[in-house]
Simulated scan of single mutants.
Amino acid sequence: MNTRSMIFTLYGDYIRHYGSEIWIGSLIRLLKEFGHNEQSVRAAISRMSKQGWLMARKEGNKSHYFLTQRGIDRMDEAAKRIFKLNPDQWDGKWRMLIYSIPEDKRNIRDELRKELVWSGFGTISNSCWISPNDLKKEVHSLVEKYEIKPYIHFFLTEYEGPHQNHTLVTECWDIYGLNDRYGQFIADYSQKYVIIKNRISKGEISDAECFVERTKLVHEYRKFLFIDPGLPEELLPEKWLGAHAASLFSDFYKQLAEPASRFFEEVFQEGNELTNKNKEYDVFDHPLLADE
């Protein structure tokens, strides 16, 4: 598993609930559980800082890294989508974005495409992207971020044929391939969930092992953020497996949550004992655990 990607997972699933900041030594200790060495962690942190996701703060001879506002916004958006169990209802309208970005701004165009895919847009033709979801806020944020207002047009529209709305879905997204991916996730994790649930009930698994399993679970499931546009139920295939996968993920996550968080807290507090001695963190300030 890529070190940088694992760090994103740890910030999104743990560190953001503990002030969004961690000592580099604690991060190295946590990632050691997955076989990542100190050099790779420091290199990944440096890269993420240069990309604007993190900033550093010195406390004596300790370097602490915290999420920038850009990082916080991305983590919040990702968490909202990862822990969402049911699709939204559709208003029957499509959001269409068309751009014509000059060749001398090609790098911006390439970055914009990545952002649009992340947000859930699909391409219907060159430079024309559509989504059934209300992504006006995300579009305005991208226009401002990349300073591309002169090159963008954004529409709220309805599809008048000659085909059905489902035809647009299959043309813009590999929805059946995505369904197969969800099926594979279910096959991979259903049995594993039963085995680990049984081990937890018998006290046969350590907090550290639960931390590793929970992090791997989130790390694997978050990959769907890059391929699942989050379509409303009305536009999904009849035998859609995304809901089953979300339910399995939620149940498995809850089983691992408390022991995994205990291990994280132990490492986190050891590394930040002096800095954070007067701070309190709510480990259960979490979308899946709020009602428990």
Rank of each mutant, 00 (worst) to 15 (best):
G120D: 00
V283K: 15
P287E: 10
V41H: 02
I22G: 00
T170R: 12
I196Y: 09
F154W: 06
M48P: 07
N272T: 11
D285P: 05
D180F: 13
W94Q: 01
K114T: 12
W240S: 11
Y221F: 11
K50A: 12
W90K: 03
N37D: 15
V194N: 13
N198F: 12
P287S: 10
Q51N: 14
T170Y: 08
V169G: 05
K62Y: 10
S46R: 11
Y253P: 03
G271T: 09
T157D: 01
L31Q: 05
K223N: 11
G71V: 00
R113V: 08
R181M: 13
M96G: 04
D91Y: 04
I130K: 01
W90P: 04
S127N: 10
I196D: 05
L236P: 03
H286D: 09
K32N: 13
A187N: 13
Y281V: 03
P237C: 01
L178V: 06
G19N: 04
H219R: 07
L225T: 00
I175A: 05
A257W: 09
I98Q: 04
E115C: 05
N198D: 15
Y151D: 08
Q255T: 00
I195M: 12
G230R: 08
I152P: 03
K223S: 11
Q269A: 06
E160Q: 14
T3R: 00
I22V: 09
K254N: 08
D76P: 03
E280Y: 12
Y221E: 08
S190N: 11
T157H: 06
P102H: 10
